[in-house]
Design a protein around this nucleic acid. Structure first.
Length: 728
RNA sequence: GGAUCCGUAGCUCAGUUGGUAGAGCGUUCGAUUCACAUUCGAAAGGUCACAGGUUCGAGCCCUGUCGGGUCCACCA
């Protein structure tokens, strides 16, 4: 696109803003229509998926405005805890810096600086794309007002006994240094070694001298299969399935841990898979979720041989300090030396990895906060029918998930996020235990910070030694409140009364559980209503291989490049062709370019139609539309187009609406009608003008800049945005 | 293992109450001083994955098969 054009577009954008055309007016007597922008994560530039989302949102927004609604398109940005920290960490690594070198205060300074940079880039893209959001109402999920709201959220849950804190097995990312949720994990197929290890059955005589342990003739053994010999140090039992033909005779006896000589019980448990390995399972409650469950039921102790940084603990004796994969090899060698390793096999299985940093996730026991989800999910299930899903099958997908809901681990061991508003007395409660005890307080600020001694002291020791919980909330704990905090909750604002529930929300299917399901549950909990009436899931744009676009693979297509090459409107039109609800599309830079080029040609066609109609208007033109059959025909076609386009926008089928308009304007209006009109130009002129103006209005939601520019030719100083949507 | 979506022209995809197969790009042929070569006209190209069924009629509805994607669960 030419420089001039870009400048022109920026002038148009400023003109719209100056005229206040983006602003919602809660005092208006027009009916309200509200759209909620999914806040992009504060991590970098906006990608193609964002561009498509925002283009869709903006088209619906502009149509509704022209249909005389008081429209609110509310924009914002998500502070994106884990993802933001990951991005910033990479940035700092390049400078040889790290979180711990900088310290909390300096690090947060850098974080806010980085936030500023990303904001600049976001706003630039939004402006360039012509997004007509009400910027005066923009929200950042980490701003002070939202911090207050998140505190209210937590406090309410606390008062209703829906929160608990405790040591549970969680999925831990050693690189991010925090617990993560199942929904934040991916799986990767890996070729691994399956080790068959035999454990000696403890004889009735005294425990053998383990240091000089040698297998004797006549010893009895139980053999298990494991991919993780390094965790044997933390074994506290062996489970076999019921009536195991070879091993059931050992149930009730003890086995000797081949790595440290600990005596561990053998017992039956129905959760052991008959088909896998030997039918006997070593139980390591500290490092495996299933083992944790089994261990709990059999009252086994929990040992830790891997720490939160992914290294072996003192429990591993001479292997302490090793990384997990090194420890695996060393442990296998030890087992081999003692004759405990029977054989190895190759096993292909999928390993959980952190969605953000791709590090292998370790199941670990950690102190975390949890939110009880069952009551929330139940309510959501009862009212999910009130939402129209596009495509409709997403209702079932979400329903299935809600039916199998599990408690939500809401704490993260990070710095970038809403700090958990809980204070412990360091004197009476140094372990930060949680209960209804008097040495723990839920408070937004330090309790009694500005009060004289004696006020808000610890009620156990009568002194003031408060320290805040170190952890922060999962990002989604605040994002889940997005539909109501954006409108001022917990205050009872006129905005929330008027614009909630939202008429339209859209997102990528990737975050349907993380975000959409949570918004539904939380909105029902705090506002007793579903968050939105229409929930639109767009498809994913993928590379031709069908995988995923990724920055690191270098196959990503950037909206800015398309805009530079073909113009904003052409890029927007290209994105609409991919916007069928729930349909993934394969594409590439080349295919996007081809399509965008075509729409660039279309906007050129539109300019030429305008030039022909307006600039080359004959002097002695008629003033009334004629009844000529060609005129009647094009008006009929125009009416059909108005109907179709309106209907398809109503159903959020923008790919159909744009196709309809494209076909009408180019192939009916230009190719047929205009050609024929040349022989009776004066008579046709009023119809030409009418069809052009109506076409510009219909096209405006999709191609805002070109249509505004052409509109100005005949309506200087007046915006097409303020025009009424055409009807038949 | 469970769920879900998809399989339409060489490529990427539309095709929503079932009624004679569409777009863009690509290919071939032709036109063009008259708004536009960022153009116009025309052509070639499809047993709509396969097999049954419902129907006067199926790309669309039902059943099954094959192939691909995605999500969830499990993965010692």
């Amino acid at each position: 696109m030419e420089k001039d054009q870009q400048t022109k577009e920026q002038e148009i954008y400023k003109f719209w803003e100056k005229e206040g055309l983006f602003s919602a007016d809660p005092d208006s007597n027009k009916p309200p229509y509200s759209l909620l922008m999914p806040p992009p994560n504060l991590t970098g530039d906006l990608h193609l998926g964002h561009a498509m989302q925002h283009a869709i949102l903006d088209a619906v927004t502009r149509t509704k405005r022209m249909q005389r609604f008081d429209v609110l398109l509310l924009p914002g940005v998500d502070h994106a805890g884990i993802q933001f920290e990951g991005t910033l960490t990479k940035l700092l690594e390049k400078e040889g810096l790290s979180k711990h070198k900088l310290g909390r205060e300096k690090w947060l300074e850098r974080a806010w600086q980085f936030k500023k940079d990303v904001y600049k880039s976001f706003h630039n893209t939004w402006t360039v794309m012509g997004i007509s959001a009400d910027w005066s109402r923009e929200v950042f999920t980490f701003e002070p007002r939202i911090q207050k709201a998140v505190f209210e959220e937590f406090k309410t849950f606390w008062e209703q006994d829906l929160l608990y804190k405790g040591a549970y097995i969680v999925s831990w990312c050693p690189k991010c240094g925090t617990a993560i949720e199942d929904v934040e994990m991916e799986y990767e197929e890996r070729r691994e070694t399956l080790y068959f290890v035999r454990y000696q059955i403890e004889q009735s005589q005294a425990k053998s001298d383990f240091v000089n342990y040698q297998i004797q003739d006549g010893d009895e053994f139980i053999t298990i299969a494991t991919t993780r010999p390094e965790t044997i140090f933390a074994d506290t039992g062996i489970a076999i399935y019921k009536n195991h033909p070879k091993f059931s005779k050992f149930a009730g006896k003890n086995a000797i841990n081949p790595l440290n000589g600990n005596v561990i019980p053998i017992f039956e448990d129905k959760r052991v898979d008959k088909e896998f390995g030997t039918g006997a399972l070593k139980i390591t409650p500290g490092h495996d979720p299933l083992d944790y469950e089994i261990g709990k039921d059999h009252a086994l102790p929990i040992l830790h041989v891997i720490d939160k940084t992914g290294r072996m603990t003192e429990l591993a004796k001479d292997l302490a300090g090793l990384k997990i994969d090194e420890a695996e090899k060393e442990a296998a060698k030890k087992l081999e030396r003692s004759g405990s390793l029977i054989k190895t096999e190759e096993l292909i299985h999928s390993v959980p990895i952190c969605e953000r940093c791709k590090t292998t996730v370790e199941p670990l026991v950690s102190e975390e906060w949890f939110l009880k989800m069952e009551p929330l999910a139940k309510k959501a299930l009862g009212r999910i029918d009130e939402i129209n899903f596009y495509p409709t099958n997403y209702k079932k997908i979400l329903t299935d998930w809600l039916e199998k809901i599990h408690d939500w681990c809401i704490s993260r061991s990070q710095w970038w996020g809403h700090r958990i508003p809980v204070w412990y007395c360091s004197k009476c409660n140094p372990g930060h235990a949680v209960g209804k005890s008097k040495d723990m307080v839920v408070s937004f600020e330090e309790p009694g910070k500005n009060l004289p001694a004696g006020k808000q002291d610890c009620q156990t020791c009568g002194e003031k030694h408060w320290e805040q919980d170190e952890q922060v909330f999962d990002t989604w704990f605040s994002s889940g409140m997005w539909p109501i905090t954006t409108l001022g909750w917990p205050e009872k604002t006129k905005e929330i009364k008027r614009y909630f529930p939202w008429d339209f929300e859209l997102t990528s299917p990737e975050i349907k559980y993380l975000w959409i399901a949570r918004m539904i549950m939380l909105s029902l909990r705090f506002k007793d209503n579903v968050p939105f009436k229409n929930m639109f899931f767009h498809g994913m744009l993928r590379p031709l291989t069908g995988a995923k676009f990724s920055k690191s693979l270098g196959n990503a297509v950037y909206p800015d490049e398309l805009i530079k090459a073909w113009g904003t409107d052409a890029t927007r039109m290209t994105l609409y062709t991919y916007s069928a609800p729930g349909r993934d599309s394969r594409t590439s830079k080349q295919l996007m370019d081809e399509r965008a080029k075509n729409f660039r040609n279309f906007s050129n066609k539109l300019r030429n139609i305008a030039k022909f109609t307006i600039e080359l208007k004959p002097e002695d033109s008629a003033t009334e539309m004629s009844n000529h059959e060609d005129d009647k025909w094009i008006l009929e076609e125009l009416n059909k187009t108005i109907e179709q386009a309106t209907k398809n926008i109503e159903k959020f089928e923008l790919h159909l609406a744009t196709e309809e308009l494209y076909d009408f304007i180019w192939h009916k209006f230009a190719d047929i009608y205009i050609e024929k009109s040349k022989s009776r130009r004066e008579e046709a002129q009023p119809t030409l003008e009418y069809v052009l103006e109506t076409s510009l209005k219909l096209l405006h939601p999709f191609m805002p800049f070109t249509t505004e520019e052409l509109w100005q030719k005949t309506h200087p100083g007046k915006s097409i945005m303020a025009e009424a949507w055409p009807t038949t």
